[in-house]
Simulated assay, not measured.
Amino acid sequence: MPLTLPGLARAEEESSSEAVARQQAAVRAGLATARRWGLERLPAQAPQRPVVRPELKPAQGVKLAPGRPPVVYRVPTDEKIVFLTVDDGAEKDPEFSRMAAELGVPFSAFVADYLAREDYGYFRRLAAQGDMVNNHTINHRDMRLLGYEQQRDEICRQQDQLERQIGVRPRLFRPPYGEYTDDTLRAAASCGIEAVPLWNEEAFPDRMEYRYDDQRLHPGDIILTHFRGTSLWNGTMTDLLRKVVNEVGAQGFTFARLDDYL
């Protein structure tokens, strides 16, 4: 039997009330999640991935050379987004990965085999929750001290290892210590690397270190931190993530996933 006009009005009112109730319940759940991790509120939601990755041109924050993958300190964008990256792989803290997933904080890992190989399962789980696992060489050696063939071995062997362990051959490579030569870029290109992201900020559990004079975040900045624990830090990886989330939010930024932009 079709609804009368009063019946339609009541149905629309009930539907609207249900929508409001669902929204309120979602807000309460989000607040509970934030407080469980020691935050006042959830970080702003990450934007949808761009349909087309930003074009990289020679500019501050981007270095280009023919036949070489671009070296990127800052992704070209006007959006107030930043990119969290986590290096090495020594500390495999399940609370960190759970916290990032529950808060909706995307990040990209750059993993060195000698630190990760005891438990690649941890990094497979990161990949399963949407956090890309990228190349940081086999042995974490300073590329400046190696010849071309040694560098190529460090990079290409880790490409093969990550493809075996994670199921995806990385497109991104970060040289240990952020140090590289032209041979590094040439070797990386031969291994299928498409971009070399570096960074403008480094995060710790108790502070952020900036390369800019204004000591502020800028659109497209890449933030470096590490898989480390209390043996090397005055805090845990969850302390670290709390610090970064608070710092990024206080400056009006949100997180995006680096692999979606490079």
Rank of each mutant, 00 (worst) to 15 (best):
V111P: 12
A101P: 11
Y120H: 10
G104Y: 01
V82L: 11
V75E: 09
D88L: 00
S97K: 08
L64I: 08
R68H: 12
F107T: 13
I81D: 12
P94E: 09
A112D: 15
T77E: 12
S97Q: 12
A101T: 13
D93G: 01
E102Y: 08
R68D: 14
R98H: 13
V72Q: 12
S108H: 00
A109G: 10
G121L: 10
V71H: 08
V82S: 06
A116D: 06
E102I: 05
K80T: 01
L64R: 06
D88A: 00
V105N: 10
F107W: 10
P94W: 09
T77I: 02
P69C: 11
T77K: 04
V111E: 09
D87L: 04
V111N: 05
Y122V: 00
E102N: 06
V72D: 13
T85Y: 01
L115R: 02
A90L: 14
S108R: 03
A90D: 11
K92T: 04
K80V: 06
A109W: 08
G121M: 02
L64W: 01
Y73C: 11
V62Y: 05
D87N: 03
V86W: 01
V62N: 10
A116C: 05
V75L: 03
F107L: 15
D119I: 00
R74Y: 02
K80Y: 02
R74N: 11
D87K: 04
E102T: 07
S108G: 02
A109P: 00
V75T: 03
E95G: 09
I81H: 06
A100F: 03
Y120W: 14
P106Y: 04
E79I: 08
G104R: 02
V105Q: 14
K80C: 08
V71N: 02
V86I: 15
V72P: 11
S97F: 14
T85S: 08
V72G: 13
T85F: 01
P106H: 06
S97P: 05
V62M: 09
D87C: 06
K63D: 14
F83D: 01
Y114N: 15
M99W: 04
P69R: 10
P70Y: 03
K80H: 04
K92R: 14
R117G: 06
D113W: 03
S97D: 15
T77P: 07
I81S: 04
A101L: 13
Y73H: 15
V105G: 11
P94A: 09
E95R: 15
